[in-house]
Design a binder for these strands. Structure first.
Length: 240
DNA sequence: AATCGCCTCAACCGCTATACC
DNA sequence: CGGTATAGCGGTTGAGGCGAT
């Protein structure tokens, strides 16, 4: 009878939602998104939470225009791997697959098409890679070196953020998991408790200002070994 | 000043891969 | 080994912003 069963929220995220999500992720780490969605008090799906985190709230995200270097890198990597956006993204610290995907769609494809139009002759095989490669004939073989080169690219928010590095991998949260497994055990509403401090005085800036993301986060790669550190270990952060 | 069209980007959807039981 | 749950990926869509007319 009571079946309150609120509908899952969709659409743009509010700042408050961001904060709730950030706090919850800080607590539990970047996994069990369904669970995070539940305990955060957000009426979102785990999938949605993950996406929001990965594409917008994740520490270390660069924002703003792609540098020429990144642009070339995208071209190069796309030529090599095709639409493997996530894979390409791993080569571009601070950039998300979604961002790269969008960027490609808007900028590069257009360029490629323009180029294609110009040189409508020749190249009957219309593999996209062929086309955009020709946009940057001078593209050096950068694959393999970008790991270092892109590090600390200008504009990385890491330069202005301070805080506790999030955990990406070995995350000793078992205990907390056990504690939290009892849903109503106090966290219901990360919004009301865990993040209570946020509802009072104005937050520092945006949700991600709570983070100090090591750029190492973005070195997770098939080939590049991830730095074997960063965990929540000490100090969970300003939310608590 | 108002309208239109284009561009950008955040977010959703569906599918696949992987992990876990 | 099979089934289920969870995470991740790539494609697509739609709202909002911005410049051109």
């Amino acid at each position: 009878m009571v079946t309150v069963r609120e509908e899952t929220r969709k659409g743009p995220w509010t700042e408050q939602e961001d904060l709730q999500l950030v706090c919850t992720v800080r607590l539990f780490g970047e996994r069990r998104w369904d669970f995070i969605a539940k305990v955060s008090g957000l009426n979102r799906t785990g999938k949605s939470c993950r996406l929001r985190w990965v594409n917008y709230l994740h520490p270390g995200l660069k924002r703003g225009r792609m540098s020429p270097h990144e642009e070339r890198l995208i071209l190069e990597l796309h030529a090599r791997w095709g639409n493997r956006w996530s894979r390409i993204a791993r080569r571009l610290p601070g950039r998300t697959d979604n961002e790269i995907k969008n960027y490609w769609r808007t900028h590069m494809r257009k360029k490629a098409q323009e180029r294609k139009g110009n040189m409508s002759l020749s190249s009957s095989s219309s593999s996209s890679s062929l086309t955009y490669q020709s946009c940057y004939p001078d593209t050096p073989s950068i694959i393999g070196t970008e790991g270092q080169e892109l590090h600390g690219g200008s504009g990385c928010i890491t330069s202005i953020l301070k805080g506790t590095p999030p955990d990406m991998d070995g995350y000793p949260m078992d205990q907390i998991w056990m504690e939290i497994e009892a849903p109503e055990a106090g966290f219901d509403g990360g919004k009301d408790h865990a993040c209570s401090s946020l509802s009072g005085p104005p937050p520092p800036c945006t949700a991600w200002d709570y983070y100090c993301p090591p750029e190492a986060c973005w070195k997770m790669d098939d080939e590049i070994k991830m730095a074997p550190h960063f965990g929540y270990s000490e100090g969970v952060g300003p939310c608590f």
